[in-house]
């Protein structure tokens, strides 16, 4: 599904040059569940952002379905992104002024889908993640676990083939964290590719494969025994 070849990301300011990613080579296939681990500042989130096309690499190639997107403009990336990739963030990133249903619908809003179909799909996905009874609530009225479930619903409502999760359980207590992990596992079993950044070895165990980053470089890759 995606392949990275000698990919680097360097942040330059006037005085400092920070190498966030250094010669990274990764390949992820459709249907995989991959965890990315590593200490703070090792480049996990940068990698995830580049995979999610929220950012461009400084050097190297990024093949997404055999299309090298490394130098694509933001507009082109946005177009690929909205068709294929769903995002889940540690801090949920729901819009405070919109209801639960509206937040989820947002992911369909920019996809030329009729209003009635949007409604049906939002209803269906809310059922699936178990927050249908909260449809009219504002995010601020929900618990953290519920908010993250809304975020998961938003990430999958557009039938995205890949979900990128940036420490999805970081702001949750263990019970809610596990709930979210099970939900992701379920999605993976239905065929969705999942790439997740996490600090928690326990949660990384849900993944088939773990990529360990250190100072911007891939140090090890572990495959979990099936």
């Amino acid at each position: 599904m995606l392949k990275m070849h000698n990919l680097s990301k360097i942040y330059r300011t006037d005085e400092v040059e920070t190498i966030a990613l250094n010669n990274v080579n990764i390949e992820i296939n459709s249907g995989e569940f991959v965890a990315i681990m590593g200490p703070s500042g090792c480049g996990k989130s940068t990698l995830l952002n580049i995979i999610g096309m929220l950012d461009n690499p400084s050097e190297g190639d990024y093949l997404f379905f055999d299309e090298n997107v490394a130098r694509y403009s933001e507009a082109k990336l946005a177009n690929i992104r909205k068709r294929h990739i769903g995002f889940i963030f540690q801090s949920f990133n729901l819009i405070d002024e919109l209801t639960v249903a509206e937040n989820i619908e947002l992911a369909l809003l920019y996809h030329d889908i009729a209003a009635s179909e949007r409604r049906d799909r939002v209803a269906a996905v809310m059922d699936k993640v178990g927050i249908a009874h909260r449809a009219k609530h504002m995010p601020s009225q929900l618990s953290g676990g519920q908010q993250q479930r809304v975020a998961v619903a938003r990430a999958v409502v557009g039938n995205q083939s890949m979900i990128l999760a940036d420490e999805p359980t970081g702001n949750l207590d263990s019970a809610h964290g596990q709930e979210v992990m099970e939900m992701l596992q379920g999605l993976n079993e239905e065929g969705t590719t999942i790439v997740m950044v996490t600090h928690s070895p326990a949660h990384a165990d849900y993944a088939r494969r773990t990529i360990n980053l250190f100072d911007g470089q891939v140090v090890t890759e572990n495959l979990r025994a099936a």
Binding site: G52, L54, A75, A78, N79, R81, K82, R83, F87, N93, L94, I95, E97, L106, A107, L109, Y110, H111, R154
Partner: peptide, 16 residues
Amino acid sequence: TKEIGIRKVLGARVRD
């Protein structure tokens, strides 16, 4: 800013 970021992640174009 945050809201605009979210919308863009979800596929909103500059024009939107």
